[in-house]
Amino acid sequence: MTDPTPRVALVTGGTGGIGRAVIERLVQDGFAVAVHYAGNKARADETVAAVKAQGGAAVPVGGDVADEDAMAAAFDAVEAEFGGIDVVVNTAGIMLLSPIATLDLDDLDRMHRTNIRGTFVVSQQAARRLRGGGALINFSTSVTRLQFPTYGAYAASKGAVEAMTLVLARELRGKDITVNAVAPGPTATPLFLEGKDQATIDNLSKAAPLERLGTPDDIAETVAFLAGPARWINGQILYANGGVA
């Protein structure tokens, strides 16, 4: 780290495919990073070790994103380690697919607890704690515009994320904090690929004019833009999907 006072980012879901790519990209930009995990501390520790091996600064923080006490403690830990927080990237989420008519309502509750309540809890902490010049970056999905069958409950949860993101951007007037959401299209992550046969994956890879699936690095570039130079982008949903919608 060449900057003696680097900017600090907390990435929820930091051990996932997109979360890990975001961490690696922000480290390239000189950020100190907090790697959040829900249950797999070993993966978080491995990510932290990889950042430190590259000369970066990182710390693991755990907890259920939907638990306000756990998230308050996570933010406390980051502030204690690095002195403050400049960027929060909220990649944590789950995706359970089913036609609406047959969806298990327990799955609906699980998904909405993580995707809606979790995003709300983390956004609430970010609104209270981000330093001036900071950024909150939530995660939606391009499926809110694509209307793929079986994605109804997931898209509904992300529609809620978009609504709270747009409102919070206006509520933080005067604080010099941007609030946006990234809405990836089909992206080659374990979360997306799980349960799909090769024919389905091939069809989805042709949906965008660029004729490929997105990669976690594609999404991380969008996050880095919002976390750094994009100070005039605020209260927006950025569709990072290669032109699929």
Rank of each mutant, 00 (worst) to 15 (best):
L191C: 07
L191I: 15
F192Q: 06
F192N: 07
L193I: 13
G195M: 11
G195S: 09
G195H: 06
K196P: 06
D197C: 08
Q198C: 00
Q198N: 06
A199H: 06
A199I: 02
A199F: 00
T200P: 02
T200V: 13
T200F: 10
I201G: 02
I201N: 01
N203G: 15
N203V: 03
N203C: 00
N203A: 15
L204Y: 10
L204C: 02
L204K: 05
S205W: 08
S205R: 12
S205D: 09
K206C: 00
A207E: 13
A207T: 14
A207S: 14
A208I: 04
A208E: 07
A208T: 08
P209W: 10
P209R: 07
P209K: 08
L210K: 04
E211I: 03
E211A: 13
E211Y: 02
R212P: 03
R212E: 01
R212Q: 00
R212C: 01
R212L: 01
R212N: 01
L213M: 14
L213H: 03
L213F: 09
G214S: 11
G214F: 06
G214L: 10
T215M: 03
T215S: 14
T215A: 03
T215C: 03
T215N: 04
P216V: 05
P216S: 09
D217S: 14
D217V: 14
D217K: 14
D218V: 04
D218C: 08
D218Q: 05
I219G: 05
A220K: 03
A220L: 04
A220F: 04
A220S: 11
E221P: 02
T222R: 00
T222G: 10
T222K: 00
V223W: 02
V223D: 02
A224Q: 11
F225V: 08
F225A: 06
L226N: 11
L226G: 12
A227N: 13
A227K: 10
G228I: 05
G228L: 04
G228R: 01
P229T: 11
P229L: 03
P229D: 05
P229S: 09
A230L: 12
A230Y: 12
R231D: 05
W232K: 08
W232R: 12
I233G: 00
I233S: 04
I233C: 06
N234F: 12
N234H: 15
N234S: 14
N234L: 12
G235E: 11
G235H: 12
G235S: 13
Q236T: 15
L238M: 15
Y239L: 11
Y239H: 15
N241A: 09
N241S: 13
G242M: 02
G242P: 06
G243P: 13
G243K: 11
G243Y: 11
